[in-house]
Simulated assay, not measured.
Amino acid sequence: MKFVRSIQLVATLFIFCFSLSPIGSAATLFTPGPDKSNDRTHAFFHELLTQIVGDKYVIASRPHQTQNRSIGLLATKAYYDVIWTAESSERDETMLRIDFPIFRGALGIRGSIIRKDYEPYFNAITSIDEFKQVRLCQGHNWPDADILEYSGFLVYRAVHFESMLEMVSRERCDAIALSIFEGYGEMEAFEAKYSELTFSTSVLLIYPQSYYFYVKKENSALALLLEERLRLHHLSGDYDYLLSSHPLTRDAFPLSKYDTASKIIVQPGNAFFDDNDK
C-alpha cells in the first residue's frame, strides 16, 4: 500500500511540475507547412503569426496539402487551426475570415515570372486583348485561376509552384502571374536553379483580390484575437516593417517604381467575392 501511495505521489508531483512548464502550458497553433524548398511565403506567414500571437501560442506546422484539401481540413477536422489563402465567396462561406487584408489588399496587383528571352515581346503588351494571348500558369486551386479564366485569359493549372516554373522554363507556359508582394521573393529563392527566368513588372495585371487568414467557423475567439493583434501590429508600424524587410516582400518597395508600368485592368465582376466586398 505504501508503494502504491508513493507512486501516486510521484505521479501527482510530475503532473503539477509539468503544468508549470512553459512548453507544457503553451497552446499550439497548427498551420500548413511549406509546399516547396525555401518556401518564403510560408516563412512570411509563420513569422507574422509568431509576432502577433507568439506570446499565447507555439506556431507549428503540419504537412502541406493542396489548397482545397487544406480548407477542408480546417473547416471539418481538427488538423489546422489557421490557414492563409486568397479570398473567394465560397471560402468565406466555408471558413471564418479574419478581416485584415494581408499584403495591403494588393494580391491582385500582379507582375509575371517569364523567360528572359520572352521579355521583348512581353514588354510590348499594351492591351488586355494582347495579354489574353499569353499562356498563364496558375495554381490548380487558386481563385486567381478562376478569375482569369472567367475573364478570357489562357490559363494552365498546376498543383505545385515549382511545376509552374518548369512549365515556363520549358515554354509550356509563357508566364506565372504573381502579386508584386510575392513575385520578387519567390523568384529570388529559385534564381540559382532557374537563371533563365525573371520577375517582370513592366506590365501589371490588376484586379480585386486579397489574402486573408482564415479559421474554423466555430473558432470566433481565435478570429477576434487574430484581428485585434493584426490591427495593433499595423498601428505600431511593426507590420509595415515586416513587409519592407522580409525576404518575400522587401523587393516590392518602393511602390512608386510601378508608376511607369503598363497596367491591364481586369474586371471579373462580383461572382468571386463576398457581398461585403462588392
Rank of each mutant, 00 (worst) to 15 (best):
S61R: 13
T201R: 06
G105R: 06
N276Y: 03
E191I: 14
H64L: 06
G237K: 06
S61A: 15
P63M: 11
D129Q: 14
R170P: 03
Q67W: 01
L20K: 02
S21N: 07
Q65P: 00
I59M: 04
L225D: 09
P268R: 04
D240I: 08
A177M: 10
L29R: 03
T85I: 13
I147Y: 01
M95A: 02
L255G: 07
D117E: 14
V134R: 06
P143M: 00
F16W: 11
V215G: 02
G72K: 06
Q67R: 11
Y156M: 12
Y79C: 03
K278C: 10
H160V: 02
V215K: 05
G139Y: 08
F181G: 07
P101M: 03
M164K: 02
A43S: 15
S220L: 08
D99P: 01
H42C: 02
E47C: 03
A86T: 10
L230E: 06
F18I: 10
N276I: 08
P63L: 11
L204N: 03
I102H: 09
I147V: 15
S19F: 12
I147P: 02
I98M: 00
Q8H: 07
I128Y: 04
K56C: 08
L248V: 10
R250T: 09
I59Q: 02
S19I: 08
E186Y: 07
F16G: 07
T126S: 15
T201N: 12
I176R: 07
D146N: 15
S25K: 15
R115M: 12
G72P: 00
F253L: 09
R91D: 00
K193T: 15
